[in-house]
Amino acid sequence: MTAIVECRGVTKHYRLGTIDVAALRGVDLTIDKGDFASLAGPSGSGKTTLLNAIGGLDRPTKGSIKIEGHEITALNANALADLRLRKIGFVFQAYNLIPVLSAVENVEFILQLMGVEAAARRARAKEVLRDVGLEGLENRRPARLSGGQQQRVAVARALASKPAIVLADEPTANLDTKTAEDLIALMSGLNDRLGTTFLMATHDARVISRTRRHIVISDGGITSDERRKLAEAEPA
């Protein structure tokens, strides 16, 4: 299998006043192409810190992180921004979208940053919105979309650049049960159909139960990494 993410000895220390807090303690982790993985653990275990480090949002204190074989820990702020733009898709718990842009413009925005020509980016934005089931809602602004629809737009935006991996941080935390299950089914379906690699930091048992790989982190270290075969994948 091709490794999309390779973490070796990733350590992250924070200073909280005079106290040194170890958020990650030498994490070794490989995410392969096509993985549909959940990263679970109690609050403060280091899930988000690890996700941020992999996504180039935060720098580890020590260790190596490679995305598609390229070391990212030494990159400067602009190079990290480019990496996030082209190689990584993000879905957050909330505040995912630009409120003044419509659904299609939110998706297009990424492609505009990448310098994609207008007609091509509009076509691609519509294609991914169709993929996430938002056909007909392209011109609505976030305020006129439900929470689930907003998260679908966020997923569409994350997919627009055809990234190496989509990192989702508690994507279902603000959604009701039905909407959350629909979103998980959507991401699972995209993973099946398009082979998109997903790594999701989550507490949500519904998400964990739908992933084919389950990683547990505790006190800044990986305590379990289990691959499993799901009985049946629901359609997106």
């Binding site: 949002l57 921004a81 733009l85 409120p99 990424i110 650049s161």
Partner: peptide, 16 residues
């Protein structure tokens, strides 16, 4: 500020 954080996360440079 949170929105700017999100914009940076999706690949917008701080200078932009």
């Amino acid at each position: 500020t949170r929105e700017f954080g999100m914009l940076m996360a999706i690949g917008m440079r701080p200078a932009q």
